[in-house]
Each structure stands twice: as structure tokens, then as C-alpha cells.
């Protein structure tokens, strides 16, 4: 039997985020989602620095809702150590109210499992109490309770 030993390779990078993502992260810290408005009027969340269609530099940021619709999802039945939730959850693309694109986050369905997930379901951000300007300031999205739905 060969000897084995644990070996950890770790780089503790701290990266600059740039002006646009910086504003987005600052928004998260302040408990709001910011998107970028393109010249054609689309609102992209998360915000890019340049228009993906024309390449022009963008700068008009607008707030969008902190609830939205799941456009696609993938169920994680056995979370790994570094996953954002230590219980079964879904990776999901969430199109926030007012946005034209979806962003990746996680959905915690609460009690129950994958049967609670569906494409088109409404979810709402659960914010952490202590926020630092990181995408994990949103702990997760949760199914929006039926009485809270406003259309």
C-alpha cells in the first residue's frame, strides 16, 4: 500500500473588478441589483462593460428587481464542500424583473427537493444580513410565496 498525503495548492488572489462590475458589486452590498442599458434599450444583468452587439462602451446603469423567473436550472443532490449551500439545491439562471438577460445563482427550495423546481417559477433573492460586495451577498434565491406574487 503506497503512502499518501494531503496536498493543497492555493492562490489567495484578490482581483480588481473594474468600474462596471464594481458598481454591480457595490449595488449588491446595498441590497440591489444593477443592470446595464444598451443602446437598443435592453437591460443586461450582470452588467457588461461593452455592448455585446455593437462593442460600444456602456455606462448607463439601472436598477432591476430582486425577484424574477428561473429560465433554466440544474439540480445538485449532493453538494460539495465549496458549494454555496450545504443542502440539495439548484443552480439556476434567473431573469430578474426588468432585466432582459438571466444571471446564474442558486435556488434553495426550502423543504422538499427537485420536484419543487420548474422552469418559469418565480424566485426572490434572500439577502445576507452582512454584505461585503460579492455575489454571495445574495445567499440564494427562494421560491416566491404565492401571496407575494404581483404581476
Amino acid at each position: 500500500m503506497a503512502l499518501t498525503a494531503p496536498y493543497v495548492l492555493e492562490y489567495t488572489y484578490r482581483r480588481s473588478v473594474g468600474p462596471v462590475v464594481g458598481q454591480f458589486l457595490t449595488g449588491l452590498r446595498d441590497q440591489k441589483f444593477l443592470g446595464m442599458k444598451t443602446s437598443s434599450g435592453r437591460i443586461l444583468v450582470p452588467p457588461p462593460e461593452n455592448d455585446p452587439e455593437t462593442g460600444e462602451t456602456l455606462s448607463e446603469m439601472v436598477a432591476v428587481g430582486d425577484a424574477g423567473v428561473v429560465t433554466t436550472w440544474s439540480w445538485v443532490s449532493a453538494p460539495r464542500k465549496n458549494h454555496p449551500l450545504q443542502k440539495p439545491f439548484a443552480w439556476a439562471l434567473v431573469k430578474l424583473d426588468g432585466a432582459d438577460t438571466a444571471m446564474l445563482h442558486v435556488v434553495d427550495v426550502g423543504e422538499g427537493g427537485m420536484e419543487k423546481m420548474s422552469t418559469g417559477m418565480r424566485v426572490r433573492a434572500r439577502w445576507k444580513a452582512e454584505r461585503i460586495g460579492h455575489v454571495t451577498d445574495v445567499a440564494c434565491f427562494e421560491p416566491e410565496s404565492p401571496q407575494a406574487v404581483t404581476r
Partner: peptide, 25 residues
């Protein structure tokens, strides 16, 4: 990470890369 002041814009974020191996001799 030193906590950024609540009224300052976010300019940096931690983005650690960590790989855990079990090496065999």
C-alpha cells in the same frame, strides 16, 4: 478581507483558487 467602508465603491474582490489533492508516494 478588511471590510470595505459601507459608503465606498467596491473595487476588489477575493477570488481564491484552491486545489486539494491526495498525493501518492
Amino acid at each position: 478581507e478588511p471590510k470595505p467602508k459601507q459608503d465606498e465603491p467596491i473595487k476588489r474582490m477575493l477570488a481564491p483558487v484552491r486545489l486539494e489533492f491526495t498525493v501518492s508516494a
